[in-house]
C-alpha cells in the first residue's frame, strides 16, 4: 500500500470554508485511500467536513496532505489540484 505526503499552499480565496470543505470531502470520498490533512500540529480526517472546517484553513495556509492506499497517487494529485486551483 502506498503512502504519499505533500505540502500544499491553499489558494482558495476565502479559505476552506463550509462549501469548499464539502466539495473537498465529496472528492476525497471518490478514492479508497485514507486521506489526512495536517495544519500546524493538528491532523484530521480529510473525509470529514467538520474536521476540515475545524482546521480554519485560510487562503495561503500551508497544509500537509497524507494519503495512504492503492489509489494514493491519483488521490493526492486530484485533491492537491483542488486546493491549489479552487477560487470560490
Amino acid at each position: 500500500m502506498e503512502r504519499i505526503e505533500k505540502e500544499i499552499v491553499v489558494s482558495n480565496i476565502h479559505g476552506l470554508h463550509a462549501r469548499p470543505a464539502a466539495l473537498f470531502v465529496q472528492l476525497a470520498n471518490q478514492f479508497d485511500s485514507s486521506i489526512m490533512l495536517k495544519k500546524d500540529s493538528e491532523m484530521v480526517d480529510g473525509k470529514s467536513i467538520i474536521a476540515i472546517l475545524s482546521l480554519g484553513i485560510n487562503n495561503g495556509s500551508v497544509v500537509r496532505m497524507i494519503v495512504e492506499g492503492n489509489d494514493a497517487p491519483q488521490a493526492i494529485e486530484r485533491l492537491k489540484r483542488f486546493l491549489e486551483e479552487s477560487n470560490d
Binding site: 470554508h17 467538520i50 472546517l53 475545524s54 482546521l55 480554519g56
Partner: peptide
C-alpha cells in the same frame, strides 16, 4: 467569519 466557523467545528 471563517475563524468562528472553524471554532464551532472544533
Amino acid at each position: 467569519h471563517l475563524k468562528m466557523l472553524a471554532f464551532l467545528a472544533r
